[in-house]
Design a protein around this nucleic acid. Sequence first.
DNA 1: TTTTATTAGTGTATAAATTACACTTTTTAA
DNA 2: TTAAAAAGTGTAATTTATACACTAATAAAA
Lengths: 229, 229
Amino acid sequence: MSHKLKEVLKNISIDCVIFGFNNNELEVLLIKRAVNPYKDYWALPGGFIKKNELVKEAADRILFETTGINNIFLEEFEIFDSVDRFPLWRVLTLGHYALISPNLYHLSTGSDSLEVKWFSINELPDLPFDHLHIINTALMKLRNRVRYKPIGFELLPAKFTLPQLQKLYEVILGKELDKRNFRKKIMKMKLLKMLNEKDKNNIKRPALLYKFDNKNYNRLKEKGFVFEI
Amino acid sequence: MSHKLKEVLKNISIDCVIFGFNNNELEVLLIKRAVNPYKDYWALPGGFIKKNELVKEAADRILFETTGINNIFLEEFEIFDSVDRFPLWRVLTLGHYALISPNLYHLSTGSDSLEVKWFSINELPDLPFDHLHIINTALMKLRNRVRYKPIGFELLPAKFTLPQLQKLYEVILGKELDKRNFRKKIMKMKLLKMLNEKDKNNIKRPALLYKFDNKNYNRLKEKGFVFEI
DNA sequence: TTTTATTAGTGTATAAATTACACTTTTTAA
DNA sequence: TTAAAAAGTGTAATTTATACACTAATAAAA
């Protein structure tokens, strides 16, 4: 790690599970570790919290330093506390996750990472520590959360189509949705702004483009609106 | 604290917010601190995690040592990480909460607590550290959680009446519910076992007693049932 | 230019759930 | 025996959820 042990809280670390959506599949961002233990292994971006850092600040910094990604909404989802999960000493890890639209972020390595890459969650490499368990836990939490908070939208480009949104939810929830009912339900929530543009990506019947109306979502939320899919 | 600093992870502590339900009010369990800082103050039961302890084990032990309560379901709900929240050094606190039926548990003090007592959440004493913030956050999380998981039942005695259950939900959710609709909704879920007994507590028309059918709840859950109030 | 192919977009019927509401019954206390 | 207090109950209207097939709009192919 790039920071001296004396600068950090050596018993508390952070691991980040960054989900993306591509080719109608969920993906997760991994780094190739530059340091031991498990040098050269693909693993979750992670690191230790500095002594005077808030958890949120640390998560943002660690993610940026290892992958080049910043300015995303990281959320704590679980504490991983097995006694021997880190081979050298006792470490509790605060798991964080985020959903991002992969094409919006430029990836770069840092001193702790040799390489950064997206992996389909259906084709993960061997992972060190309990990182597979962390990813699976994050996925379970994501599946539940996405139904009660409009975080799924973060996985789409700023401009998206209703068929894309539906596909995203089908992939996350693992079930087929009726497009008539899905469309009616979403449109009724009044969370989308229709754009006077169509998706022109080699499609016979180009679909209308929308964007998420965050301002209206917050306004409705204050009035007691509850998102649910 | 009763444990030597060298035995614990001094940067990670646990605070427990234990909710009870009494006189149609939510209550929270506090201890009078036996040690500095803030000796003699009423505060949340808390302590440090031992070096080879799982978070869950630590939470259970800390709660038992400070209040005499054990064998309850503690759940982590938030991390409190302000840099100066503990005056002597950097401490991150893993907030845990639980709901219990107060009459089922015998309270006792330990070496860290001079006294243990229930306080109405509407009449809290001055609290040290950020304990008021911790309690308010727990309450917010509780209000949401109680709608999507049948944890509210934990606040009632093993045998309870439907009017008691409704009152509990009204208190937690902060709104009045129609007793006809509430009764229909609850009975339809098939989570209660009707007892051939009535509540005989100085009531003109004694109500039927029920108990929560955990076995059936788990069976229904496996079949895809989702609790929601 | 016309035809074909592919996908987006739409409407209707039924079932289920939610919401709003007042009176009857059952017990204990007076 | 009567009064009081609370539990228990049913109905109607509205909203939401679910299931389903055809039409329309475009680009590619002929």
